[in-house]
């Protein structure tokens, strides 16, 4: 064997190589083409998962004995804007959920009218992108019921949720596609663990999309908009964290 290649040399090269690999990853992702390939993982995962789960596969539902003793709140704990504070002071009597965009009949729904809709109660696991999970009971009308009442127009592909809270000065919003919008467990939660939603958990209305991670479950939902494309909303990636931090729009994994 060549004297140029020595045991010590190989060990040094191997150590250097592993170190370079870790550091190199940060360089690689700066290359637009490499970044596109890496980010395409999201589309592949979405395609595979949707193929395997089908439209109506349900997230597991638990018993009351499985509830987390304490369900932590995350993200915004209180929107604390003058408009929101006024709603809280009035016990949400003046709250209206606006439903618009590509719909036949735009709606403006009071909290009372939402409470009168047929509702679903489900005990599900909430999975944060950070890694923790909490089990809670959620109660509210199916999003599909509201969307059918408004009547989606042809061309509508996504449902956007505009929220009352701001993070770092930007309004929180989220979006899902119709695959999840008409899923039976996708509800506009009005209550949690048997009581009306509290402010830290998104009062008065919080989206539940049980087959996706926590940041998709928009709190403080004020307006629902049906759109053909996500372009032009926020930075166009479909949600606050998607715009701001490169988080996946499809958060089923």
């Amino acid at each position: 064997m060549s004297r140029l290649v020595t045991r010590r040399g190989l060990i040094a090269a191997g150590t250097l190589g592993a170190g370079t690999l870790l550091a190199g990853c940060d360089r690689v992702i700066q290359v637009p083409a490499a970044r596109r390939i890496l980010f395409s993982g999201e589309d592949i995962q979405r395609g595979l998962q949707r193929t395997l789960m089908g439209r109506d596969a349900l997230a597991r539902e638990f018993d009351a004995s499985d509830l987390s003793p304490v369900f932590r709140s995350n993200g915004t704990a209180n929107p604390d804007t003058p408009a929101y504070n006024a709603l809280v002071a009035g016990k949400f009597a003046d709250y209206r959920l606006e439903v618009g965009g590509l719909v036949a009949r735009p709606l403006s729904l009071s909290l009372d009218s939402l409470w009168r809709l047929p509702a679903r109660t489900q005990i599900t696991r909430h999975d944060c992108v950070e890694g923790w999970s909490a089990i809670g009971q959620w109660h509210g009308p199916m999003l599909g019921t509201v969307l059918k009442a408004a009547g989606l127009r042809t061309g509508a592909r996504y449902i956007v949720f505009h929220c009352a809270d701001f993070i770092a000065g930007r309004p929180y919003y989220e979006s899902i596609d119709l695959f999840d919008a008409f899923h039976p467990q996708t509800i506009l939660a009005l209550a949690m663990n048997g009581a009306p939603l509290t402010v830290p958990h998104g009062a008065p209305v919080r989206l539940r999309v049980e087959r996706q991670l926590g940041y998709k479950h928009a709190k403080y939902v004020m307006r629902i908009e049906a759109v053909a494309s996500l372009v032009g909303i926020g930075a166009g990636k479909g949600g606050f964290w998607e715009d701001r931090g490169n988080y996946d729009w499809y958060a089923g994994i």
């Binding site: 870790l22 304490v70 089990i135």
Partner: peptide
């Protein structure tokens, strides 16, 4: 099934240093 800040972990780990993580600086999304 569940576990978060108010529950009892069986293991608390240290924060992994930047020379071990991808990317080097903390960025959960990346």
């Amino acid at each position: 099934q569940y576990g978060a800040n108010f529950d009892r972990p069986w293991l608390d780990l240290p924060f992994w240093p930047s020379w071990l993580t991808i990317p080097a600086n903390y960025n959960l999304a990346i």
